[in-house]
């Protein structure tokens, strides 16, 4: 098994920094959903990770901890992460993106 980035939506949707989306070296890996926080009554959307593209460098963790100081991203084992976003389930809209969550192991 291997580590991938996992973003805590509760913490992320309370801010709107989007720094991790800009600092990830992989394209379309950390995406942003403007509507992610609304269900939980939070102000902003949240970033999320398409884990099939994540190479596990943890650059986003450093950026979130040290530049944004939000501590919202942790590296977790892919088989213990629960349902998450995969590239095949990502839908782009007009200035937004969202993903139906699925098991990273079974798809």
């Amino acid at each position: 098994m291997y580590l991938v980035a996992n973003i805590d939506t509760g913490i992320c949707a309370a801010t709107s920094c989007k720094l991790c989306t800009q600092y990830c070296p992989e394209a379309n890996t950390i995406l942003y959903n403007n509507d992610a926080g609304k269900d939980k009554g939070l102000k902003y959307g949240s970033a999320y990770v398409a884990v099939d593209r994540c190479k596990g460098c943890a650059q986003c963790v450093w950026v979130c901890d040290n530049m944004a100081k939000h501590n919202a991203i942790k590296m977790e084992m892919i088989d213990q992460i629960g349902d998450t976003a995969l590239t095949q389930n990502v839908t782009y809209g007009e200035k937004n993106s969202s993903a139906t969550l699925a098991s990273p192991i079974r798809g």
């Binding site: 800009q22 600092y23 070296p25 593209r53 190479k55 782009y92 200035k95």
Partner: peptide, 29 residues
């Protein structure tokens, strides 16, 4: 613009560069 990253499909696709490579980040930006 860079501020909209994560909400549109990027021109750069998956690539074989090393994990965490700053060069990749620069190329992406």
């Amino acid at each position: 613009s860079v501020s909209q990253v994560g909400m549109f499909k990027e021109i750069l696709e998956e690539h074989p560069m090393c994990a965490g490579c700053a060069m990749t980040l620069f190329i992406r930006l």
